[in-house]
Design a protein around this nucleic acid. Structure first.
Length: 891
RNA sequence: GGGCGUAUAGCUCAGUUGGCUAGAGCACUUCCUUGACAUGGAAGGGGUCACAGGUUCAAGUCCUGUUACGCCCA
């Protein structure tokens, strides 16, 4: 037996570091197509290079690690591909902040030098989160770690852009886009986050030209944009205003002449029914502008200040301008009123600035044609969201998909592979870095300045990590991948787009299952965020408890797809569980066989069921149950139930019952029994460790070796996943399982008697059991010592004909009636107790009687339900009879 | 405005296709340092399953409505 002595205390820090290093050194996570087998693939949602591990990452990556470790043990060619995302705006912001401390702007460095700085930053800090994932125990194939801006992935991006461009699905156009004045770039619709804001609705009079004193009242939430108004619109069906259509108004302050137009878009109910039209600053107004041929006047600069079209307000910040213009309108007597108006305002998802809808020339992807196959795939169930409800959210978005603004006015990212010839105005896409115009041969050639949206590289992730467009065996083997685990926030940004890219460029779906986990929140239900200061640092938890504790607790608390509320104390669950397992392992090690006997080969245990006690059968059957349930839970992404079943099995069934019961044997001197009980323990514990391994990889690996279950050259990572449903075993075990469950109840009842009569735990006391029948008698007789041990009994008598001579505290059980010998007892208290039980039983019996008397119930309920009711009725009647007898016996 | 989610013990949550006496962890009460473990053991208290209707032999579970909170989209 290769068994090393386990130290008294578990030291997770040293052990976790040791095993992770060993796994890496032995390339345990590495996989390739050449190893064959059935592939099981997960691509990790690439965290931002600027990222630091938060609870959301910890949860998501624990989930993925559980899945991949489980499949690996099942014998799949399991591959988990990690990587990081260049996170265009976020990373650029970080480096710009750094520059600012040096008193520099990126423009001071110029594009090339600035990019050098970003790469420097990336090389220095970009692996922070990757290293944190290692502390978590993530079993990713780090040899395959990718970065969205590495050479291969950049090629994939270029290839995709050019294919779409040549297909006519990428176009450049001037439209209203979401502009972040702080980041000074366009954003996609998804990157503009709507936040409910307590805004105001300003009612303003626009004087009618040549009609002194007459005016039209409009309502707006953004009064500063009136400087760019080129019309006022009313609904043509709105009789209140038909007389105004065609009239000329004087734009307040600027006194520019604008017309009143009629357009169906105007909602009669909103505001005053008259709306100002600002084609350069509002998407709806823009459309209206096109319909009516209105001028588009952009009144703002890139950084959110008013420009030369803003007249006296030029140079003011947009919000300062809002304030000023309202004051001026009031002074001019044109401001009618201000109302509170809660509404949603777009905010930049990177810097939280208020987004400015603004007319701007940008690149777009035409999405409708790309969406079609992705819609079909989910409708036909080829791709499945878990929980299912996300199907609807996804389909809703896909069916109403809008074109994707992909150009960003930043420097860090994939530069758009479009080139312009300034000599002949030719525009073309190019995979290389052309220096000459292919049309006129001029060298007056420049590349488009913009870079692509970060998501334009992430949407290719499931195949670009396998070096697409290069056709290669890994790509063939591992694509499509299997499970994708991610948060709901990212369904539109990423999941939907990956599906579209998969179909468009590979002609096949990127994954078959999308598990959407919940959001990690604090105890008050708030999202964890830096600004709220309510985040719990996973690394701090790993430090105070362990990575295993973090993983176990987190998953134990996460019901499928529901949000998780965590606080530091909750991680004690995992820590305590780990300690419990550690200690039971130490207990097993304490018990050695006599030195002259052949040692147990824990790696090749040959069980002897012929010599088993009921408890041996019971624990082996319960292990089989646990394996079965664990398997089902993992297949259905029910991680909390998976954690729970192992917790229950190891702590309750194994430690609390089986081990306690085994002590009677282990401290005895029947060597054959000692041997077999130890064998059963090792058999069960080995398998339990394997079942637990995906959740608590470090502790299980340490114990698996410590107990001698694995050789130095092996790892529990590759040990076989215990198969469940040993039908023959289950059939044979069934009677024992029923008996032992009843025995546990009997012991519980005995302990209740002790507690009821305040017998101190360390005081031994005699019990007598009157079995219900001869069969129970035999079983109990075989078990008296074990039962006595758990009841702390001085003596246990089994007596089929026991009749107490004087009043004794007693309790009923399926196996018999248990009596406790007490010097002198409070008869009245015992009577009260038994009568309370009798009342409860009678009450329930009445309900069951009534149910069974109901013909409709008997006729319509399922057979097994009726049967169970009848069995219960019998049982209750029985119990009532016996309780009456017990009460009578009290005298 | 539309959609989704949640409401079960003091707290945080499970509860699968309706069917035994609604469960767990934490917290709480009492007792216990017995030979794995006090990061532990034993026993216990605590629930009108948000509210109002309905369907059904049977509803925490299904349907309708109401309220509260949260999220997403416009």
């Amino acid at each position: 037996m290769v068994m090393s002595e386990l130290p008294k205390n578990y030291d997770p820090k040293a052990i976790e570091a040791k095993w992770y290093a060993s796994w890496l050194e032995n390339k345990r996570f590495h996989q390739g197509h050449a190893n064959g087998g059935e592939p099981y693939t997960i691509v990790m949602p690439p965290p931002n290079v600027t990222g630091i591990l938060h609870m959301g990452h910890a949860l998501n990556n624990s989930i993925q690690d559980v899945l991949i470790r489980w499949r690996r043990m099942q014998g799949y060619n399991a591959l988990w591909v990690p990587g990081t995302d260049h996170a265009g705006i976020a990373t650029q912001n970080v480096v710009e902040r750094q520059l600012k401390k040096e008193g520099l702007r990126r423009q001071d460095l110029g594009r090339e030098k600035f990019l050098e700085r970003v790469w420097e930053w990336k090389n220095k800090y970009g692996d922070t989160i990757v290293n944190q994932l290692k502390a978590l125990g993530a079993s990713c194939d780090w040899d395959r770690q990718r970065f969205t801006m590495d050479e291969g992935l950049s090629n994939a991006v270029k290839e995709v852009f050019i294919r779409l461009y040549e297909k006519g699905l990428i176009y450049r156009g001037t439209y209203i886009i979401n502009w972040c004045p702080r980041c000074q770039t366009a954003l996609s619709d998804e990157e503009s986050e709507h936040q409910d804001t307590k805004g105001k609705l300003y009612y303003i009079n626009y004087p009618i030209k040549d009609m002194a004193g007459a005016s039209v009242m409009i309502a707006t939430t953004r009064p500063e944009t009136l400087l760019g108004d080129t019309a006022v619109a009313v609904n043509p069906k709105d009789e209140r205003f038909t007389h105004l259509i065609g009239k000329t108004l004087l734009l307040p302050i600027l006194n520019r002449k604008i017309l009143v137009i009629a357009d169906d878009f105007v909602a009669k109910e909103f505001g005053t029914g008259c709306v100002k039209v600002t084609p350069a600053h509002d998407p709806n107004d823009y459309q209206m502008g096109l319909r009516h041929n209105l001028e588009q006047i952009n009144v703002m600069t890139d950084d959110g200040h008013m420009n030369e079209h803003a007249g006296p307000y030029q140079g003011l910040d947009r919000f300062a301008c809002r304030k000023k213009i309202v004051e001026d309108l009031e002074a001019a007597g044109l401001l009618v009123k201000i109302e509170e108006h809660p509404h949603a305002v777009g905010h930049c998802y990177r810097c939280d600035s208020v987004v400015e809808p603004r007319l701007s020339p940008q690149w777009f992807v035409k999405m409708k044609p790309l969406a079609e196959p992705g819609i079909t795939a989910v409708k036909e169930g080829k791709i499945r969201f878990i929980p299912e409800r996300w199907n609807k959210v996804y389909l809703e978005w896909m069916e109403n998909i809008r074109d994707w603004c992909i150009s960003r006015q930043i420097w860090w990212g994939h530069q758009i592979p479009i080139f312009y010839c300034d000599a002949c105005n030719h525009e073309w896409a190019d995979r290389g870095k052309p220096t000459k115009c292919p049309k006129c041969d001029s060298s007056n050639v420049r590349q488009d300045e913009d870079v692509l949206d970060t998501w334009f590289s992430s949407w290719l992730w499931p195949f670009s990590v396998f070096n697409w467009p290069d056709e290669n065996p890994d790509l063939k083997f591992y694509y499509p991948t299997n499970s994708l685990s991610t948060a709901s926030e990212i369904i539109f940004f990423w999941v939907a787009r990956m599906i579209m890219a998969g179909y468009e460029f590979i002609g096949d779906l990127p994954f078959t299952e999308v598990y959407i986990h919940g959001t990690v929140r604090d105890n008050q239900g708030r999202k964890m965020s830096k600004s709220l200061g309510n985040s719990i640092d996973p690394l701090e938890i790993i430090n105070t408890f362990s990575a295993d504790a973090l993983r176990f607790s987190l998953l134990m608390l996460t019901a499928t797809g529901q949000d998780v509320y965590v606080s530091k104390e909750k991680f004690e669950i995992g820590r305590n569980f780990g300690t419990k397992i550690w200690n039971v392992a130490r207990f097993m090690q304490m018990h050695k066989l006599a030195p002259e006997t052949q040692p147990i080969d824990v790696r090749a245990i040959r069980l002897n069921p012929d010599s088993w006690s009921a408890d041996d059968w019971h624990i082996v059957a319960k292990l089989d149950d646990a394996a079965k349930v664990a398997q089902e839970c993992l297949e259905r992404f029910r991680f909390n139930d998976y954690a729970h079943v192992l917790y229950e099995f190891l702590w309750r069934e194994f430690c609390d019952w089986y081990v306690e019961y085994a002590k009677e044997v282990l401290y005895g001197n029947d060597e054959a029994r000692r041997r077999e009980v130890l064998q059963v323990m090792h058999y069960v514990f080995d398998r339990a460790l394997r079942l637990l391994h995906p959740l608590m990889p470090f502790l299980t690996e340490e114990l698996w070796h410590g107990m001698g279950y694995g050789l130095d050259s092996e790892t529990i990572m590759n040990a076989a996943w215990p198969k469940a449903d040993n039908l023959m075993l289950r059939g044979m075990a069934q009677p024992y399982v029923e008996y032992v469950d009843a025995k546990h109840d009997l012991i519980h009842k005995g302990r209740q008697l002790r507690s009821d009569y305040e017998v101190p735990p360390n005081e031994k006391i005699a019990f007598t059991i009157r079995p219900v029948d001869a069969n129970a008698e035999t079983q109990l007789r075989n078990d008296v010592r074990g039962i006595g041990q758990l009841l702390k009994a001085s003596e246990i008598s089994i007596d089929l004909n026991f009749a107490p001579e004087k009043a004794m505290p007693s309790a009923l059980n399926a196996l018999g009636t248990i009596y406790m010998s007490l010097g002198n007892m409070d008869v009245e208290a015992e009577r009260t107790k038994l009568q309370a039980q009798l009342a409860a039983i009678s009450e329930e019996l009445d309900r069951v009687d009534a149910r069974l008397a109901d013909r409709e119930f008997v006729k319509k309920a399922r057979l097994d339900v009726v049967r169970r009711s009848m069995a219960r009725q019998e049982e209750l009647k029985n119990k009532r009879e016996k309780l009456n007898a017990l009460i009578a016996a009290l005298g």
